[in-house]
Design a binder for these strands. Structure first.
Ligand SMILES: O=c1ccn([C@H]2C[C@H](O)[C@@H](COP(=O)(O)OP(=O)(O)OP(=O)(O)O)O2)c(=O)[nH]1
Ligand SMILES: [Mg+2]
Length: 825
DNA sequence: GTCCAGCTACG
DNA sequence: CGTAGC
DNA sequence: GGAC
């Protein structure tokens, strides 16, 4: 099969004489026969589509020879397969032989090119008569990825490249790589995807890799542009070791006649001419922006998406180096202070206890409570427990808070104080506490951060979402401030003044999430949160710039959206069609951006294909089968009902167990994505906790309530909280639901409440703030002096500062307490 | 230029 | 270890 | 993509 190792070209680019697009034909044409006939070194990699369409391919391959021989094909083929009839044997020369080590152009190829030009004029072909329009790509060998012309857009790109003098190579990359000068990648491909697609571990630096808008732009400007420009870069491609490489490579491999403009001049020119650069021109007036002909290119991709963690420099997370400059609040050494819980504190009381006590939920203390249409729901915990007197009783019997007085905040606090597990003094007794902590604990901070005006006006701290009350809805202009109705998405129907902006930015956030650019997505999410809190319409970039988490780039986008209602850069067609399958797959439990992208690149578009063709983990299997169920929101009422069932069983096991429904439910959101349940027991520690969890799961499974397990904690002793993730179902007519159990030691309940209440953004924000102050906040507690080693591995647990009370954690961190319903950041 | 939360389970 | 999840 |  040596003949196989020859370079082939897309040979029927223009084969559609009738001008009718026949996908099958396209597909068949897209690969040289040998590619299928021989064993590709990298099966399934040769091309994404080849593997995903193996069936149809094989069929097509059979038909292919016929077509090849057909007369009409010959001519068209002749045009493209520059090596065909004229030079039957040489053309097929294995690239390696002719192209020694460098991508020097084989003479035969040169010859062929010259031959090609005249031919072009003689080309016939109905609709798309190929014409040699220029030779700017002279001596360039393009390898398109995906390497087929199945996609009509790509086919056009290949055609155009060809018409401007490029050789467009088809077939196994392995076989042809010595000749390849450029890899032209679909804009959805990032570097790792490319490697995967061509079955390589790496690529030599001399091969230029560009996005597929590169050829079009070159054609537009009639010259070879600087392929190193940002808009052509392939995200994630390692930088060449030596600076001289790229340009050298191009001039070396391609004829010196190619006018390679100097980068600078090009850059300027492009900035002037290229639409893509509207991005760099952050404050360009919308009118001056030319609509990109390309598409998604304008949506930035991360240059190095796989960026690793921080460096060893932050080996030790101590207050010192990490502290923010404007330090009044950020002491060198955080002095934990346990100020008394004061009435001014917007504490509703500890909802956890109140809930458990089966009486009025903490929210009842909240003046605005009634303003939530949802508030009845908040009474739910009430129903939950009161309806179930046993729960209340058992709870009380277990020596917990008296169930009766929760609505009295003072009383709650008092009760808490006399309760061993809630008493701050108890904390100071912890042996592992350091002395400073004790001191400060005895002496409530004079500079109590809650003297918060300082804090709040601190520019820096404003960017922490946890410093704001984040209701689950858009901020409204001041006149309805008193009425916290609304709460958009989750708690109400109110519409904020910047909904359109939020919607567009959300699309971008989603896009970046889909494309594994988590930090850019994070930025969008923070910005959205910030906008949501802003009660007035944002009209200009300069206005937007004033908001926290909004910088020049987002500000200009906001202005554009405000004025045009849209974002130029968001090529809706491509965005939606391309991201659609990604979103579908990402919606599968157990499938993240990586897997989703892999599948999309393989050409899958439906769950059925996944089910049939892909090897799945156990969790993914459930995820695929229950995709529809898990995608459904769960009404609060049903969440509560799940909680009731679990509680019932828990109570059979141990009367002392206390449960709380957490997550979005605890935050008062109307419909939840899943059911989060936390379980603990006074005095309980890791070992017992784990036993309890096992038994609960066992019984609930027997009962038929739990349907599937997705993940569960490992160890037996479960020093860390034990958790169990799975699926539950209330009754056969209802969907399966995602349900999470978290069983925690009593001493960690505060931190666990904080963690499991969320939301995610709120948690991250609070944890970030904690780390700025030298602490580490996790689901078990607030710690000091956590020492981390290389790779950021935790070496020391640090010193536990607080883990029992949510409020205290807020206080220590100097964050105004936020009741759960204000944590919808 | 660096960091972006922090942790656990699965394979 | 990388991926995915909470 | 923003904060520092
Ligand atoms: O990456 C994460 C995911 C979750 N959590 C915490 C906060 C979150 O509120 C809680 C429960 O997680 P879940 O995924 O159920 O989120 P939720 O807030 O309950 O929202 P949903 O309604 O989608 O379940 O666990 C985190 O701290 N980090
Ligand atoms: Mg949840």
């Amino acid at each position: 099969m040596d003949k196989a190792s020859k370079i082939t070209f897309f040979d029927n680019l223009y084969a559609l004489h009738d001008g009718v697009t026949d996908p099958d034909e396209d597909e068949c044409a897209s690969f040289a026969p040998f590619a299928a006939a021989q064993k590709t070194p990298n099966p399934g990699q040769g091309s994404a589509s080849s593997s995903s369409n193996s069936n149809s391919n094989s069929k097509l391959w059979d038909t292919r020879p016929r077509k090849r021989n057909s007369l009409k094909l010959v001519s068209t083929q002749g045009n493209i397969v520059t090596s065909t009839p004229a030079e039957p044997r040489e053309p097929i020369t294995p690239a390696p032989a002719v192209v020694p080590s460098k991508p020097k152009l084989p003479e035969t190829f040169r010859f062929k090119y010259e031959e090609k030009t005249p031919r072009s004029s003689t080309r016939r072909n109905s609709t798309s008569t190929p014409v040699q329009k220029s030779n700017i790509f002279a001596d360039m060998y393009f390898y398109f990825i995906p390497n087929n012309i199945k996609n009509i857009t790509r086919k056009l790109k290949v055609q155009r490249a060809h018409e401007h003098g490029a050789f467009c190579i088809s077939g196994s990359f392995e076989e042809t790589q010595k000749a390849v000068t450029h890899i032209i990648a679909d804009s959805s491909f990032e570097y790792p995807d490319i490697l995967q697609a061509i079955g390589q571990k790496s690529l030599p630096d001399h091969i230029i890799i560009v996005k597929d808008n590169f050829p079009s732009d070159c054609i537009q400007f009639r010259r070879i542009l600087d392929h190193k420009q940002y808009m052509y870069l392939i995200p994630g491609r390692p930088a060449p070791k030596l600076a001289h490489i790229p340009l050298d490579a191009i001039s070396a491999s391609s004829s010196s006649s190619i006018a390679t403009a100097t980068p600078k001049s090009i850059q300027k020119e492009v900035i002037k001419q290229t639409p893509h650069n509207s991005l760099t021109n952050k404050f360009a007036t919308p009118g001056s922006v030319i609509q990109p002909h390309g598409s998604l290119d304008v949506i930035k991709a991360t240059p190095y998406p796989k960026r690793k963690r921080k460096q060893a420099t932050d080996v030790i997370t101590t207050p010192g180096p990490n502290i923010v400059k404007e330090t009044p609040l950020l002491r060198n050494r955080p002095q934990p202070r346990f100020t008394e819980i004061v009435k001014e504190t917007p504490i509703k009381g500890n909802s956890y206890y109140t809930h458990l006590a089966g009486s009025t939920p903490a929210f009842d203390d909240f003046d605005n409570l009634d303003d939530f249409d949802d508030f009845d729901d908040f009474g739910d915990p009430d129903d939950f427990n009161t309806a179930d007197t046993a729960a209340t009783t058992s709870y009380a019997a277990s020596g917990q808070l008296p169930g009766k007085h929760q609505d009295d905040l003072d009383l709650i606090i008092a009760t808490a104080k006399q309760h061993p597990f809630l008493d701050s003094e108890d904390i100071s007794e912890d042996d592992d506490r350091d002395t400073e902590d004790e001191d400060s604990h005895e002496n409530p901070r004079k500079n109590n951060p809650r003297t918060s005006e300082k804090i709040k006006t601190k520019g820096g701290l404003l960017s922490f979402q946890c410093m704001h009350p984040n209701l689950a809805g858009p901020a409204k202009p001041a006149d309805d401030v008193g009425t916290r109705e609304g709460n958009g998405g989750s708690m109400g129907t109110g519409e904020g003044p910047n909904e359109r902006i939020i919607k567009v930015l959300s699309e971008l956030e989603s896009h970046y999430t889909l494309h594994s650019d988590p930090f850019r997505a994070l930025s969008y999410r923070k910005a959205i949160s910030s906008i949501r809190r802003h009660p007035y319409p944002l009209l200009t970039a300069s206005a937007a710039l004033k908001l926290p988490s909004i910088g020049p780039s987002l500000a200009s986008k906001i202005e554009e959206i405000a004025s045009t209602g849209n974002l130029n850069q968001l090529d809706t067609t491509k965005t939606s069609s391309e991201d659609k399958a990604l979103k579908l797959f990402l919606g599968i439990y157990g499938v993240g951006p990586k897997k989703a992208r892999e599948w999309v690149l393989k050409g899958y578009t439906t769950l059925e294909e996944i089910r049939e063709k892909e090897k799945l983990t156990e969790a993914q299997k459930v995820g695929v089968e229950r995709h529809a169920d898990f995608g459904r929101r769960i009404p609060r009422e049903e969440v509560r009902e799940h909680g009731r069932v679990v509680e019932e069983v828990a109570r059979e096991i141990d009367q002392g167990l206390v449960l709380e429904v957490m997550g979005s439910y605890r935050r008062g959101v109307k419909s939840c994505g899943d059911i989060d349940i936390m379980i603990t027991k006074e005095g309980a520690e890791g070992r017992y906790i784990k036993l309890v969890l096992d038994r609960i799961v066992e019984r609930l499974t027997e009962r038929g309530f739990l349907k599937a397990a997705l993940a569960a904690s490992k160890g037996d002793d479960a020093t860390d909280g034990s958790k169990w993730y799975g699926a539950s179902q209330l009754s056969p007519d209802l969907p399966w639901r995602r349900i999470d159990f978290l069983v925690v030691p009593w001493a960690e309940r505060g931190a666990a409440l904080l963690y499991f209440t969320g939301n995610v953004i709120f948690n991250r924000s609070m944890r970030l703030l904690a780390s700025k102050k030298g602490y580490v906040l996790n689901q078990r507690g607030l710690y000091l002096d956590v020492i981390r080693g290389p790779k950021r591995q935790k070496l020391t647990e640090g010193t536990l500062v607080e883990g029992e009370s949510e409020q205290k954690i807020f206080e220590i961190l100097g964050i105004p307490y936020r009741p759960p319903e204000e944590r919808n950041a």
